[in-house]
Design a protein around this nucleic acid. Structure first.
Length: 412
DNA sequence: CGGGCTTCTATTGCCACAGCGCTAA
DNA sequence: ATTTAGCGCTGTGGCAATAGAAGCC
């Protein structure tokens, strides 16, 4: 039974917002979550196409359906034949991603992008981070859970793991959650570990460092007219045939190097220490399809290293569980390789010159980045500065006060 | 090792009201 | 089509209350 959008009650619900516990159609998803900065951070994912009530965590490439853990378990865990289905993790996104980015996120098995560039209208929005699994899950009979390290053409001499998060077989919880890797923080070092039963210290980097160069800056993403774009989402073959998605987004392209990674680790540690909370990202977008299948134009490692990520408010406004559910925790723990990447980037666009330019732009933006309070209305500030208070609260003009900002005594 | 206590730090809510943005006349 | 009036909402800063973490016994 197809679920109607909880908001408009007219369109078919396609995404599930964990924060709102609501099933939304894409236009409403955008409307609701562009309302303010808080709703902007709500993590959403596809809706399970079986039960239409739970967030999907799995994309079954064979059946071409998105499934929640429960439905996946029922569907794939019970039958030997179905167990062999090739599946990918579906992760969450937040903010207001563009049509192209949503396409990239959910491009499992798509041959063509859903839109043309002209459909992509830029408005403010946080690009989110792809939570990409780091390892490849195979059925035990195939590879004994070995991690597929193919395709790791290390530009920066990093030891890394495959970006593919496709697996076959009955998915374990860790696999389904697409959180195959996390860090164990020890004194002075960060050691990655597999969350699955099989531990393998594959080493994010030789010096246990991560890439600092995640852009905190916003990346504008958005699109309008979801209907046009995703109206037939489930019939992917009808998507438009313009697959030239390059250039749709200008992305910061930070370099990956061990020094920066080390600094970044320290930043993360610092944030963890200061927040006392699980470090989480406010904007998380995943794109398992984009690199999970070789048919989908797997980007090069170099390309991965050049992707900008948008982090802010790392203190976690949503519950840790929310982020964990959608694998965001592993975004930070797996940040060795920013996974958010256009599906079919031409490798030539990551030439050394472009890369240097991108790095330069990134550095400049980072340098100029300010987290200080921003006054939007100076007139209101002036008024507030002049206003008299009682215990910090504004009082009516003429009322007795205990704080006069204009008082010389207070100002000294 | 866990509980209770203290200390420290960070976050949140409150207040009045000018002015913004929108709608209706 | 333009102007005006009215209304609801936003944002501004300092303080107190609250929450949470850390340290100690």
């Amino acid at each position: 039974m197809v679920s109607p959008c909880d908001y408009c009650r007219r369109e078919r619900a396609m995404v599930y917002c964990r924060s709102d516990a609501a099933c939304l159609c894409l236009p409403c998803d955008r409307n609701v979550h562009s309302a303010n900065a808080l709703t902007h951070r709500h993590s959403r994912t596809l809706l399970c196409e079986r039960c239409y009530s739970q967030p999907a965590t799995i994309w079954c490439a064979e059946e071409k359906v998105s499934l929640c853990q429960h439905c996946d378990w029922i569907g794939h865990g019970s039958s030997v034949s179905l167990m062999g289905h090739k599946r990918q993790g579906i992760s969450c996104y937040s903010g207001c991603p563009s049509a192209a980015e949503l396409y990239r996120i959910w491009s499992f098995g798509l041959d063509h992008p859903p839109i043309q560039e002209s459909n992509c209208k830029q408005v403010s929005g946080l690009m989110s981070i792809n939570e990409n699994s780091v390892s490849t899950y195979w059925s035990p009979s195939e590879a004994n859970n070995t991690i597929d390290l193919t395709g790791l053409d290390m530009v920066h001499d990093l030891e890394d793991v495959s970006k593919f998060n496709t697996w076959i077989g009955s998915s374990s919880a860790s696999a389904v959650n697409s959180v195959p890797c996390s860090f164990v923080q020890t004194a002075g070092s960060v050691t990655p570990k597999l969350c699955s039963n099989e531990k393998k210290d594959f080493g994010i980097c030789k010096d246990n460092s991560l890439n600092e160069d995640f852009s905190v800056d916003d990346v504008d993403l958005s699109f309008e007219n979801y209907e046009e774009i995703f109206g037939d989402f489930y019939n992917m073959s009808k998507f438009l045939e313009d697959d030239d998605m390059d250039g749709l987004f200008e992305m910061d392209m930070p370099a990956t190097n061990s020094t920066c990674q080390s600094e970044f680790i320290q930043e993360v540690k610092s944030m963890q220490a200061s927040s006392g909370n699980v470090v989480s990202a406010d904007s998380v977008m995943s794109n398992p399809g984009m690199n999970a299948d070789s048919n989908l134009c797997i980007p090069s490692r170099q390309a991965h290293s050049s992707v900008s990520l948008s982090f802010s408010s790392l203190t976690g406004e949503s519950s840790a569980g929310d982020y964990q559910d959608c694998g965001i925790s592993s975004v930070l723990t797996n940040m060795v390789e920013p996974p958010w990447l256009p599906a079919c980037l031409d490798s030539s666009s990551f030439s050394p010159a472009n890369r240097d330019s991108a790095v330069k732009r990134y550095k400049e933006k980072k340098k100029n980045r300010k987290f200080e309070k921003k006054i939007r209305y100076t007139s209101r500030k002036v008024r507030a500065d002049m206003r008299k208070r009682v215990k910090g609260r504004f009082v009516k003009a003429g009322d007795a006060y205990d704080y006069d900002p204009l008082s010389q005594a207070r100002n000294c």
